[in-house]
């Protein structure tokens, strides 16, 4: 059974249809990439899944449960977590406290704060920020803030992790280590949906790619297929792939 299922989902903002008749099924354990041009509705889709927006029509099922219209904290409690496209750590709290807040009201609901403080070291080490644990989150570099967001999301031990352009703004080395982390999280059994603009990342990480265009499904399939698809090339990639992707 699918862990996440979108059923003929619509979202209209006044006269603008941001998402139209979108259906998607994500089996448990999959690493799904979502691509599409700017304004295609990718982030809107994540906001619908996480409860920040209410669909105009259609249903969202998480693990067989109807979740459309539930508030974000209820959906989070079911095991959904996310990072934000525009990084939003809790700036005035320390790096360690950010991760602690990630877990305290979800995976660590029934444990003591002291115990959760210790357990928060795990996700921090995963993203390589343990040496910054005592620093205020606002003092981190942009790349480190992205890592912190990922650590905070991981601390909640989600069944479904939604990554909204987690690689954007990172340098080459950081992208490499971020890819490793995502792969590691996925191997540990977490279902991952990632919105990504970097074609190379999509090709190396994702098992399946979903292409969104003007709020509609354009195509879905294996990463290789997607990159060959003429409509995808026309609407999104814009040029032949062979010249774009360099190995390395």
């Amino acid at each position: 059974m699918s862990l996440l299922q979108l059923d003929h989902l619509y979202k209209r903002f006044g006269g603008l249809e941001a998402i139209g008749d979108l259906s998607l099924a994500v089996p448990e354990g999959q690493l799904l990439g979502i691509i599409g041009p700017n304004g295609a509705g990718k982030t809107t889709m994540l906001n619908l899944v996480t409860g920040y927006l209410r669909p105009s029509k259609g249903q969202i099922l998480f693990d067989g449960r109807r979740v459309a219209g539930l508030p974000p904290y209820r959906i989070a409690a079911l095991g959904v977590s996310r990072t934000f496209q525009i990084v939003q750590p809790f700036h005035e709290m320390t790096v360690a406290e950010n991760v602690l807040v990630g877990s305290l009201f979800l995976s660590g609901r029934r444990r003591s704060i002291a115990e959760m403080r210790r357990l928060a070291e795990g996700p921090l080490e995963t993203v390589g920020l343990q040496h910054r644990a005592a620093d205020p989150a606002g003092a981190l570099t942009f790349g480190d803030k992205k890592k912190l967001e990922l650590a905070r999301a991981l601390a909640s031990r989600p069944r479904l992790l939604l990554l909204d352009e987690v690689m954007s703004g990172l340098n080459r080395a950081e992208i490499g280590s971020m890819c490793d982390i995502v792969r590691q999280v996925h191997r540990a059994g977490t279902t991952v949906i990632m919105i990504e603009h970097l074609v190379q990342v999509i090709l190396t990480l994702c098992e399946r790619v979903f292409v969104l265009d003007f709020g509609h499904e354009l195509f879905q399939g294996a990463p290789g297929e997607v990159m060959q698809h003429p409509e995808v090339i026309a609407s999104y990639l814009g040029k032949q792939l062979e010249r774009e992707v360099q190995p390395g």
């Binding site: 508030p71 989070a76 977590s81 809790f90 005035e92 807040v101 009201f105 979800l106 905070r152 909640s156």
Partner: peptide, 14 residues
């Protein structure tokens, strides 16, 4: 404190 820093984000963490 999480709410003070960012109420919208705090919702995503339960």
């Amino acid at each position: 404190r999480a709410m003070r820093n960012n109420e919208d984000v705090s919702k995503m963490f339960g």
